[in-house]
Simulated scan of single mutants.
Amino acid sequence: MATKTAENTNATTATEKKATVDNATVKSSEMKNSPLHKFFVDALKDIYYAENAIIDALGKLQEAATTEELKDAFEDHQLQTKKHVSRLEKVFKLIDEKPEKKECEAIKGLIKEGEEVIKSTEEGSMTRDAALIIAAQKVEHYEIATYGGLAQLAITMGHDKAADLLEKTLQEEEDTDYNLTEIAETSINFDAEQEG
């Protein structure tokens, strides 16, 4: 009797697995119409706009920075951001969508805040550099949150190649954030504190 119960359990499990596989095999047209897919594409358009806007903003931060180390960090990140734009275009292609920009109010606000930092700090000061680092890190944290969420959604929807690309960008954004912290903590914050 115990054997029969085990056989029935195995048969049920096999049936459940088959049903799960069948449910996971959603037609791509149905997937494209799902609310989650629509949200995912919308969020990709949002970060695509943001990355393009960040390229210009980084040029302004680089010009405003005092130390060569920070100027170089902004230049490096600008080049990296251009790669992120290209990578996003690949993600769009992988999910059979056209790369489009959707105006991102969050990034517009963060960029405006960075411009205010430039206006409100003294040119050539370490205080300006410290403030620029914080402004840049606010942008990084927005990107980290966005790419982390998008990578998880891509995994959930079975877009594994897209997820890999998004995770690669996420790692680079985290590295940039770490590097900015290092620059601030190594000298700039201390030098800014000494300014009278």
Rank of each mutant, 00 (worst) to 15 (best):
A131M: 13
E143S: 00
I134G: 06
M126Q: 11
L132K: 03
C104V: 07
T127H: 10
K102E: 14
K138A: 06
I95D: 02
E115A: 06
C104P: 02
E113F: 07
K138V: 00
A145I: 06
K102Q: 14
S120V: 12
V117S: 04
Q137C: 01
A151T: 01
E100V: 14
L153S: 12
E140K: 09
V139G: 00
D96E: 15
K108C: 08
A151P: 05
T121P: 13
I95Y: 07
K98S: 11
Y142Q: 03
K119W: 04
A130W: 01
Y147C: 06
E140F: 06
K101C: 12
L150E: 02
I134L: 13
D129C: 09
L132R: 03
T121F: 04
E103D: 15
D96Y: 11
K119V: 09
T146M: 11
E123P: 05
V117F: 03
G149R: 05
A145N: 04
A130P: 07
T121I: 04
K102P: 11
S120T: 14
K108G: 13
L110A: 07
T121K: 01
K119G: 08
Q152A: 15
K102D: 09
S120Q: 14
Y147N: 02
Q152D: 14
G148T: 09
A151R: 01
E116H: 10
Q137Y: 03
A154F: 02
E97D: 08
K138M: 08
V117E: 05
A154G: 06
A145T: 06
I111A: 03
G109P: 04
K119T: 12
K108E: 12
Y142A: 05
A136S: 11
K112P: 08
S120C: 12
T121Q: 05
I107T: 01
H141N: 07
L150Y: 01
E122R: 13
E100W: 10
E140A: 03
E140D: 10
Y142F: 13
H141K: 09
Q137T: 04
C104F: 07
D96I: 09
E115Y: 07
C104E: 03
A130E: 08
G114S: 13
T146D: 10
A145P: 02
E105F: 09
E100C: 15
C104A: 13
V139L: 05
K102Y: 09
G109F: 07
E143F: 00
P99T: 07
I144N: 00
L110M: 15
T127W: 08
E115H: 10
M126F: 15
G148R: 04
A154P: 06
Q152M: 14
